[in-house]
């Protein structure tokens, strides 16, 4: 505790409180391997229960100011979503393989469904997250979602990526501004140009690696792989910092303190560990990544977190999230 903790009458000074992650590699390994084995033995059916269990492990080991998060999703809801998602994926690939114009229908449908998918996915995840007996929720609707997830992305494509950082900024702002904790809304002041500096720096890192591999062809694959990972680590760390730094819940400000090099080290060493261990090190890789990411994210708590009010939360289906995963969408922060 800070020694200058103010008295009752003095204006309170906010306290920076990072998330705390207490997960441990061995404990998670046991859970992971037992649940993976059960999933494989049941030809994937158990994977819905496995997902809930592993998420409960991560949520229940994540604390903010002494209270833990709780993952509430029902395995049956996930299983139903998963079955439909797999059928949709099979149908999608079968029809897109056809040499006729029919092949164009699924991508167009997918594009139209994308905003719905993202919204439902976020709604499912957030409404199944509880903290201090108050649930989160997501209130984004189709129209604004279509604007940020389809129109802005098309604009980014048409300008050969020049508008991509702006499109990403619009998406992140949309997500934050439609997230609620109980009755309280999140707000975002993320500026339009917030992602340009990290994007250009990452591009620079990647081009540097490209130049190095052109000069020294012997190390080209290594330089490109490391350069790509570094560029990714830089952008993901810095953009997360910016999103969080611009986000607020009530009077409480968020702050991200991720740094490029340590985060890149976690990602690179994880990739090597997983490859060398033929996948056995996946639990440790996940724990290390979660520990770094979570412990470098925090909240400037103004007073305390005792005054949030709960809201009635409608139960949402898992279909959006499972479809999003089947089609490999990377949704959320």
């Amino acid at each position: 505790m800070d020694e200058s903790t103010p008295g009752a009458l003095a204006p309170s000074t906010p306290q920076y409180t990072p998330l705390e992650f207490t997960g441990d590699g061995w404990a998670y390994f046991r859970i992971w391997v037992v649940n993976v084995a059960l999933s494989v033995l049941t030809l994937g059916i158990y994977s819905a229960w496995a997902k809930v269990r592993m998420n409960r492990y991560f949520y229940g080991h994540t604390q903010l100011a002494g209270a833990s998060f709780e993952y509430l999703a029902e395995p049956m809801a996930i299983l139903k979503g998963r079955i439909i998602a797999v059928l949709a994926l099979v149908l999608y690939s079968a029809v897109t393989q056809s040499p006729t114009l029919w092949a164009l229908i699924p991508p167009v449908l997918f594009m139209l469904a994308l905003p719905w998918l993202v919204n439902r996915s976020l709604a499912f995840r957030l409404s199944n997250t509880r903290y201090r007996n108050v649930r989160f929720s997501f209130t984004g609707s189709y129209g604004p979602g279509f604007k940020v997830h389809v129109l802005w992305l098309l604009a980014a494509g048409l300008t050969l990526g020049v508008l991509l950082p702006l499109a990403l900024q619009r998406q992140q702002r949309f997500v934050v501004e439609h997230t609620r904790y109980g009755l309280s809304e999140f707000s975002s002041e993320l500026a339009g140009g917030a992602f340009y500096a990290p994007a250009l720096q990452s591009l620079g890192i990647f081009l540097g690696a490209g130049a190095l591999s052109a000069l020294l062809p012997a190390v080209a694959p290594l330089a490109l792989a490391l350069g790509g990972l570094m560029a990714y680590a830089h952008f993901s760390a810095q953009s997360l910092n910016r999103v969080l730094g611009a986000s607020q819940l009530g009077d409480h400000r968020f702050e991200g303190r991720l740094e490029t090099l340590p985060w890149a080290w976690v990602l690179i060493s994880n990739a090597v560990l997983v490859a060398l261990s033929l996948g056995l090190a996946i639990p440790w890789a996940r724990i290390r990544a979660a520990r770094y990411r979570l412990s470098h994210v925090g909240l400037w708590i103004e007073g305390d977190l005792e005054t949030f009010l709960a809201a009635e939360v409608a139960q949402s289906s898992a279909l959006g999230e499972e479809l999003g995963e089947a089609f490999d969408l990377d949704i959320g922060l």
Binding site: T22, G23, D24
Partner: peptide, 23 residues
């Protein structure tokens, strides 16, 4: 009761919706 896998936080839901959280 919702037990915490692998030492994660565990929760008890009371009949009227109160909740008890423990490590």
């Amino acid at each position: 009761v919702s037990e915490g896998p692998g030492g994660a936080a565990a929760f008890v839901t009371l009949p009227h919706g109160q909740r008890f959280e423990t490590r």
